Every structure is written in structure tokens, then in C-alpha cells.
Amino acid sequence: MGHIAQTEAAGLVGIGLYTPAEAGRLLLISPAKISRWLRGHEANGKQYEPLWRPQVDLGDEGIFLGFRDLQEVRVASTFIEKGLSAQRVRQAIELARDLVGEARPLSTAKFRSDGRTVFLQVVEEDGQTKLIDLFRKQFAFRDVIERSLTNLDYDEAGVPAVWWPLGRTKSVKIDPTRSFGQPIEAETSVPVDALVSAVEAEGSPEAAARTWDVPIRAVKRALAFRREMDMRSVA
């Protein structure tokens, strides 16, 4: 976050901040694809509008995502993989906003339970028989949604609040109200980057644990998370 001015950073508290590259590693989705979805693009002389406007607007700094954007991308990507065009997903989002009453509706608890008719309406306009069959079946729709929104905790309003990118057992979570939404080790609430940097500076996980006064297991979880993200960067 060094490239973000302090005054701008203050306005990001509770929202989270991620570049397309960071989002791509967390979501296992191409950063270029994420940028295209959120910026819009031109192809074959036709202009395609963004799927939605990102939470974070830093002007000429480029595209950034908030925590809610991450969760919307997870769902949008799943439906695009099922054969729905990105622009049909955008249409579904527009319809779902009225249903849910949220600017980013796809990842809400209400959409998980009531959103089937939104996608059914969208695919019926295209006459795509297989997709219509998929979304007409409530169990199939729920399976698609549940697989795209695993390891997610909701607040009382049914809005995504905490995400466990590698699952709860790995003890690393993303909470937009903590550390600008960067991954933190759940047991200690210390940012993963801080623990990894301490290992690099001190020379060992044991020394890093002493520096932060945390259990060695917390440092090892942070290192394991970083290794996973680094492997995703290479892939």
C-alpha cells in the first residue's frame, strides 16, 4: 500500500484494498480478466461495459478492488465458467440489485437463497437450453452458488464480512475492517506479511515468534499461506 497516499488510505478503512494481481492470486482468476470485467473493454469494434463499478476509485492510479468486489468476482466467475457471457452476468447483477437492495448483490446471503429466478430470467432471454435447465433446478443453482462462496462468514445483515481464502483450518482470514483487508493470522490477528517479514529479518520462525510474542504455529501458518500465494503467482 506504499503507493496510496495517507489521506486516501484513511478512506479505505473497512473496505479493503487489492490490485488485480493480488485479487487474482487470492481468487485463482487471471488479473487481466478481472481488470477487463471491472474496467470494461472493446472487442471487434464493440464496447463492453464493466460488470459493476469497483468499491475503490483512486482515479488515475488504476483498477483496485474492495473486499466486496472480491466476493462478487468469485460468483461472477463461476457463472461465466458455466457458460453465461460476462454481459449477461452484468444484466443479472442489475436485476439482482432490486431483489437484494445491495450494489453488490451476488455474494449476499439473500441472493444465495432467492437469486435463482434472476439468472433464470437472464438465460431465458438467450434461449440457452442447458443453462435454463441448470438454473431452473433449485438444487443445481444452490450448488453453483455454494461452491463459489465457500469459507465465507456473514454479518447480521447477510453481507460478507470475513473470508478464509484457504479454509478455516489454515487459520488465515481476510477481514476488511482489519489491516485494510490484508490476510491476517487468525489466532493472533497479526498480518501475514508482518510475520513473514519477521522471519526474513530474524532468520528463523522461532526468532520471529519471539519478536512478535506469538506461538510458533502462528508464524508457520503465515509462512504456509505465503508459500501458497507465491506458487499461485508462478503458475
Rank of each mutant, 00 (worst) to 15 (best):
R74P: 06
L51I: 15
D98L: 12
S77F: 15
L70R: 01
L99V: 09
G101P: 09
S85D: 09
E94P: 00
S77R: 13
P54R: 07
R68Q: 14
E61N: 08
Q87P: 02
E94T: 13
D60G: 10
F67N: 04
G59I: 11
F64D: 00
E61T: 11
L70F: 01
P54W: 04
K46Y: 10
L84N: 03
T108G: 01
G45Q: 11
L99W: 02
R53I: 12
P54D: 04
R68A: 11
W52M: 10
Q55K: 13
V73A: 09
E102P: 04
L65D: 08
L65I: 06
T78F: 03
E94Q: 14
I93A: 08
D69R: 04
F64P: 05
S77Q: 13
G59F: 13
I80P: 07
R97G: 06
F79A: 02
R53G: 04
D60K: 15
S85L: 13
L95N: 11
G83D: 06
D57N: 14
R88W: 09
T108V: 03
G45V: 09
K82S: 12
L51D: 01
S85Q: 12
S77Y: 15
L70G: 03
D60L: 14
W52K: 09
G66E: 05
L65E: 05
A103E: 15
Q55L: 14
E102Q: 14
L65C: 06
F79V: 15
A86I: 11
R68K: 12
S107R: 01
S107P: 08
D57C: 03
R74D: 01
P50L: 12
A96M: 04
G83W: 07
L70D: 08
R90T: 04
R97L: 05
A103N: 14
L95E: 13
T108H: 02
A96L: 03
A92K: 06
L95P: 00
P50W: 09
I63L: 15
E81I: 09
D98M: 12
D98S: 14
V73H: 01
E94C: 04
A96V: 07
V89G: 00
Q55R: 12
L106E: 10
I63S: 09
G83L: 11
K82P: 00
L65W: 05
K46L: 13
D60Y: 13
P105R: 00
E72N: 02
L70T: 02
A96N: 02
E81Y: 11
G66H: 10
K46I: 14
Q47C: 03
D69W: 00
R68W: 06
K82V: 12
V73G: 00
L70I: 04
G101K: 12
I93S: 07
L70A: 08
R68H: 14
G66W: 06
L70Q: 02
Q71E: 14
L106P: 03
P105Q: 06
L51E: 04
P105D: 02
S85A: 14
S85Y: 09
G66I: 07
A103L: 15
D60A: 15
E61L: 15
G45F: 05
Q87F: 10
R68I: 10
R104M: 04
R68S: 11
S77T: 10
V56D: 06
R97S: 11
L70N: 00
L65P: 00
V75Q: 07
F79S: 05
G66V: 05
G66M: 08
Q91Y: 09
V73Q: 01
L99H: 10
A76Y: 02
V73Y: 03
S107D: 07
G45I: 11
I93T: 06
V56P: 02
G101Q: 07
